[in-house]
Design a protein around this nucleic acid. Structure first.
Lengths: 144, 144
DNA sequence: GCTAATCCCTCTAGTAACTATAGGTTCAAG
DNA sequence: CTTGAACCTATAGTTACTAGAGGGATTAGC
């Protein structure tokens, strides 16, 4: 019989909170483990591995749904690999996209921060700068 | 009397959904407008300006709480401007931080995507690559 | 073998920042 | 004056967890 361990140990060995582990089980990402006589969860090494997979993917910004799809895909080694590859590529695209948008924000915030040189709100342009459109691409115009 | 306009018009002139406008009112970011005889909201230009301010700040990644603080600050033009400046600076710091972290992710995802050259899941390394630690700084180790 | 401390259980509700739905009322154009 | 779009409130759902209450289980030390 393979050695088992408690939810607390799974937590400390993965850096994932106990509540989060139970949450992942409740939404079907982690298989339900066996239970002790007293109804406590007893995990196997396979659970540890699966949880690390989930945590890494989350760290990389993947949604729970994307991870769920990867898990489904991985169950069938004969399936074409395009699906898994595609999910990772999409994620890469969205990360690059976020970087681009954040860089625009950075420049804009820089402008906002630099616009302050007074010492009273009345003289400070931070709030004014935020009220202006600046680099904003929002579709708005005067009401009428 | 200043001209007033409906919530629908405020929505189309700002690009903010009707529900979101009502939501901002409910949490106290937008002042409650007057109502028509039939209880419908009637906005003034000042509401339009305030909403744009909120939307720009949100676009720049500020939390509702930060925006609320800016609004409170702006009500007193004699207040020292450090508060407003500080909020914008914090935001700038957190944006720079996010960019840094996303760049790390980008490199890691690039690695994951490049690791696929098979055509069956069994040969594809995308899933394996995600199961490995790679650049992860998570505090985990084998369970015992 | 017993007891205290620690761990674990379920269930419910809360978080941010909206979004959506249901069921009903008002407004404005023709 | 009718009709259809726009509006109203209230409630519940979304994502990905986190926190709390009120209990039972396990384990380390004596």
């Amino acid at each position: 019989m393979e050695r088992t361990f408690s939810i607390g140990r799974l937590s400390t060995t993965t850096g994932c909170k106990v509540e989060t582990i139970r949450y992942y089980e409740s939404i079907g990402l982690l298989d339900e483990p066996e239970r002790s006589e007293g109804n406590q969860r007893r995990y196997l090494k396979s659970h540890h591995e699966r949880l690390l997979f989930i945590l890494h993917a989350r760290d990389l910004g993947m949604s729970i749904e994307a991870i769920r799809q990867l898990i489904v895909l991985s169950r069938d080694p004969e399936a074409p690999c395009d699906g898994a590859d595609e999910i990772a590529r999409q994620q890469l695209g969205s990360v690059r996209d976020k970087i681009q948008r954040l860089k625009l924000l950075e420049a804009e915030l820089q402008r906002v921060v630099e616009s302050c040189d007074g010492h009273r709100i009345g003289d400070c342009r931070v709030i004014e700068a935020l009220a202006e459109c600046g680099a904003c691409h929002r579709d708005h115009r005067a009401p009428r």
